[in-house]
Nucleic acid binder design. Structure first.
Lengths: 236, 236
DNA sequence: CGACAGGTGCTTGTATACAAGCACTTCGCG
DNA sequence: CGCGAAGTGCTTGTATACAAGCACCTGTCG
């Protein structure tokens, strides 16, 4: 009951900045300034700076002392790492499913899947539903909190996926795969759920190289390259 | 080459505090004070505070606005989550092993295993070797960086393991299991490596409940309990 | 003797001032 | 005209000052 987490402005600003990075509203490679952000958000440097430090630990921004802060370019290596991590965790959770599934979570999943079928679906809405779908799947096996760790590590993967869906938006195919996974689970067919999940996750991962060829400036070409202050090519 | 990460005192202090929490030098439940830590470390509040924020995001400390900061008590739920996560990731990496293993890493592993056999092994030394062993195993499959994420998430698990080994110290059994896993891998027997690894990881995880019965004050009994400033029972 | 109310000292959150350093510009010189 | 070097404006890192609030202690009153 207590849980006296007084609302601090840092929490708000952290989540806001994080969302802006993940939705590409802050483009990969963009230069950030603690002073500018503080002024535009109407607070002092302190909460902004602390938020950037947290984002830096997640790998979403890079802070170079005395030089500047930048939105991380999408790192293909980190994308692959996140892909490996989520695949390992989500597939393992399928084998940890209990005999009797929690009806409340199953109900939430049905509602979620219905919404995914809607034709007039915004891309951001689809991402929200997708995120909730996978988290609820993990909750079915009792490891819902592990999803928090996975979600924190897959920032680069999410940005790559958004780039992909911005090009050829086809959430319908993914929605169908979600449905297939779900039916296999409620049907008790773990092996089928396993293969369906793996197919789904790898489909999401597949066309990153195509995007990279299309927009190379959004990707990290070489780990040793340091972005420079005024020469940053943000959108080109 | 650039990578101009100037040495900042925050990085040092963050790592120092993190190490103190993981080695139980800062006991679960202990009250922390930004002012006291700053004074004892010879810096201002700023780098200390920023370090605590990072540790809070890892779940190793809890910060209650206007109340105080505390070393997190070992949360059995988080221990279980970390166990599930590492098991899923490490087992999956076994199935991603390449045909030809990197000889350099294999050599490092051999040296590591030899050191684990030494009789006069300090507990902290064993933990270091254990950590390096598992990380190098993941490097064999090309996913060494994923270990960073796993390591960041398993702070509660590590503290529980230290509590267990402080009671009945027997690194020898674990060293033998490491050897078994390694031999199965270099022998190309993935299924054997799989079962050996699973057995090993679960052995590590097994006797937490016993420790909890022995030292309940180090564990989080209820998620809603808020530690109080001067009444904190640190070591009893 | 007990309970309640106000003071006190601590806590973290935020804002601001100062320090150190890199990148770029611009001015001067050959 | 070309090149170099000092200057300038920005950056983040650290230290400090102030604000807001909770827990505890103590004194007082019933």
């Amino acid at each position: 009951m207590p849980q006296k987490n007084g609302r601090t402005s840092r929490r708000d600003i952290y989540q806001k900045l994080r969302q802006m990075v993940l939705t590409l509203e802050l483009a990969p490679g963009a230069a950030l300034s603690e002073n500018e952000l503080a002024a535009s958000l109407g607070v002092s440097r302190t909460p902004v700076r602390e938020s950037l430090i947290l984002l830096a630990q997640e790998g979403l921004v890079q802070v170079f002392p005395k030089i500047g802060s930048f939105v991380s370019r999408v790192d293909p290596a980190q994308v692959a790492d996140a892909q490996f991590l989520r695949e390992a965790v989500e597939l393992a959770s399928l084998h940890a499913l209990p005999e009797h599934l929690d009806p409340a979570i199953v109900g939430d999943l049905r509602v979620n899947l219905d919404r995914q079928k809607r034709a007039d679906l915004d891309l951001e809405e689809f991402f929200e539903l997708d995120e909730a779908f996978h988290q609820n799947l993990m909750r079915l096996s009792g490891h819902g909190n592990v999803w928090t760790t996975v979600a924190a590590a897959k920032g680069h993967l999410d940005r790559a996926r958004r780039l992909g869906l911005h090009e050829n938006a086809s959430p319908a195919a993914f929605a169908a795969q979600h449905h297939e996974i779900f039916e296999a689970i409620v049907g008790g067919d773990v092996p089928l759920a396993h293969t369906a999940m793996r197919t789904h996750l790898r489909a999401v991962f597949s066309d990153i190289e195509r995007i990279r060829a299309h927009s190379p400036e959004l990707f990290a070409a070489d780990a040793s390259t340091v972005p420079v202050r005024r020469n940053v090519v943000v959108w080109e």
